[in-house]
């Protein structure tokens, strides 16, 4: 079943003193439930712009984006916000944890915008997620006191705490060393599989990209199948 469906998606940005900047020029993409997709591309190729569209954070200039067959453009902003909270989990390159909160409180943040039952059980659910990423001993540690790898594991727990059907990872290993990055990707793969969620990873690291079933390359504002290259271990 198609979870996310993009056809002819373009995105352009107005500039102050020149013609509009055309970042995406016609993106077609289908993401199935439980899918594994990597999108690679050079810096400035529009990877993050595409991720924002996939995550319902941004709207395309033209084209269609459907989530579960429902056109996103027709939704009211509030419904889109709710749908994003319920269906999409984000993992960012810079982790983006809230500094003053503990690991458990950070993981519980998405539950503040969820259904009543999940909100009232937020402490329990956050603890459970942190156990799954091996951080049960760091529940009450402030985000700023965690190592980079631990912060990214907290971010993964946060992305999954509402059991989203789509996880969007933007350079998830970009701020980690190779070994920690590999462990983080193992964990992300495992918890996404456990949750039955689709995982779309945006990266310029081919080793990270090659973990996915499908690797797509963003070139000149369009997605192309990427030829697999053996990456030395």
């Amino acid at each position: 079943m198609t979870l996310l469906h993009l056809r002819g998606v373009t995105r352009q940005f107005a500039t102050i003193d020149g013609p509009a900047l055309q970042i995406l020029k016609g993106v077609d993409l289908d993401v199935e439930a439980g899918d594994r997709v990597s999108i690679v591309g050079r810096s400035g190729s529009g990877k993050s712009t595409l991720l924002n569209l996939l995550g319902l954070i941004d709207q395309p200039t033209t084209g269609v984006i459907e989530l579960d067959g429902e056109p996103v453009a027709l939704m009211r902003a509030r419904r889109r916000d709710r749908l994003r909270g319920a269906s999409v989990g984000f993992v960012f390159q810079q982790f983006n944890l809230i500094d003053g909160l503990t690991a458990a409180e950070n993981v519980a943040v998405p539950l503040h915008y969820g259904a009543g039952r999940a909100y009232w059980r937020r402490a329990h659910l956050a603890r459970e997620m942190l156990q799954r990423v091996g951080l049960e001993h760091r529940l009450d540690t402030r985000a700023t006191h965690l190592s980079g790898g631990e912060q990214q594991r907290v971010a993964i727990a946060r992305a999954l705490v509402r059991r989203p059907r789509l996880i969007l990872a933007d350079e998830p290993t970009g701020a980690l060393d190779i070994e920690t990055g590999a462990r983080t990707m193992d964990l992300l793969d495992r918890v996404a599989t456990d949750a039955g969620a689709a995982l779309v990873t945006i990266t310029h690291d081919l080793a990270v990209a090659s973990r996915a079933r499908r690797v797509l390359r963003l070139v000149d504002g369009r997605l192309h199948p990427h030829e697999r290259v053996e990456v030395p271990a």
Binding site: G55, A86, F90, N96, V109, P110, Y113
Partner: peptide, 16 residues
């Protein structure tokens, strides 16, 4: 601003 962005990404509406 970053914190609000994070909260918006995880489902917080503008009203919220």
């Amino acid at each position: 601003v970053r914190e609000f962005g994070i909260r918006r990404a995880f489902g917080a509406s503008r009203g919220r």
